[in-house]
Deep mutational scan, measured.
Amino acid sequence: VTVHVNRYTYHFDNPEEAEKFAREMAKRLNMTVEIHGNTLKVE
């Protein structure tokens, strides 16, 4: 599972951890999480 935050890319083996990380980053940056299959984008 890949998480994109701005120009950074993070890889996770565990989808739940990836989503938790993405949501935490989105909250911190006041952004939203978009899910595209195995890719989560924080925008």
Rank of each mutant, 00 (worst) to 15 (best):
K41H: 15
E19P: 00
V3Y: 00
P15K: 14
V42K: 03
V42C: 08
D13C: 14
A22R: 01
F21E: 00
K27G: 07
L29R: 04
H11R: 03
Y8T: 13
R28Y: 09
R7I: 09
Y10W: 10
R7K: 13
R28A: 10
R7T: 10
Y10K: 04
L29F: 12
E34L: 12
T2H: 14
L40V: 14
H11G: 02
R23W: 14
V5K: 02
A22D: 00
N6A: 08
Y8G: 06
H11L: 09
K41F: 15
V1W: 15
E19A: 08
V3R: 01
G37V: 05
V42R: 02
N38M: 04
K41C: 15
K20Q: 11
H11E: 07
T32S: 10
L29E: 04
Y10L: 04
T32W: 05
H4T: 12
R28G: 05
V3L: 02
R7V: 06
G37Y: 10
L29P: 07
K27P: 01
E17Y: 06
R7M: 10
G37D: 08
R28F: 08
V5A: 03
P15N: 09
A22M: 03
L40K: 04
T9Q: 12
R7D: 14
T39M: 13
Y10N: 01
A18Q: 00
V33W: 04
K27C: 14
K20N: 10
K27D: 10
N14F: 07
A26I: 03
I35Q: 09
F12N: 00
N6V: 07
F12R: 00
K20W: 08
K41I: 15
L29K: 04
H36R: 11
V5I: 13
P15E: 08
V33D: 01
K27Y: 06
A18I: 01
V42E: 05
K20R: 12
I35S: 07
P15M: 15
N38I: 03
H11C: 15
T32K: 13
P15F: 15
M25K: 02
P15V: 14
E43A: 14
A26D: 02
V5M: 06
R28D: 06
A18W: 02
T9K: 11
K20D: 08
R7F: 12
E24W: 12
H36A: 08
R23K: 11
V33K: 00
N14K: 07
D13G: 06
N38G: 08
V33S: 01
E17W: 05
H11T: 09
I35G: 04
V42Q: 03
A26Y: 02
H11I: 10
K20V: 09
E34C: 13
P15S: 11
F21H: 01
L40S: 06
V3I: 03
E43S: 14
T2P: 02
T2Y: 10
V42L: 12
T39N: 11
A22S: 02
V33Q: 00
K27N: 10
T39P: 03
V42I: 09
M25S: 03
F12P: 00
F21D: 00
Y10M: 03
R28M: 12
R23D: 07
E24H: 09
A18P: 00
H11Q: 07
A22E: 01
V1Y: 15
T2F: 08
V3N: 02
N38V: 03
A22Q: 01
I35E: 03
D13W: 09
E34V: 15
A22G: 02
F12Q: 00
G37Q: 05
E17M: 08
I35P: 03
H11S: 05
M25Q: 05
F21C: 06
N30D: 07
F21I: 01
D13M: 08
R28C: 15
N38R: 05
K27R: 12
H11A: 04
A22I: 04
E16Q: 11
L29H: 10
R7Y: 11
N14T: 11
F21Q: 00
E17V: 08
E24N: 09
V33T: 02
M25G: 00
N14D: 14
V33H: 01
V3S: 01
E24S: 10
F21G: 00
K20M: 10
K20G: 06
H4D: 03
F12V: 00
M25T: 08
E43H: 13
E16R: 08
E24V: 07
E16M: 11
T39C: 15
E19T: 07
N38H: 05
L29D: 04
Y10T: 02
E19L: 14
Y8S: 11
V42H: 04
L40Y: 06
H36L: 11
T9D: 06
D13E: 10
H36I: 13
E17F: 06
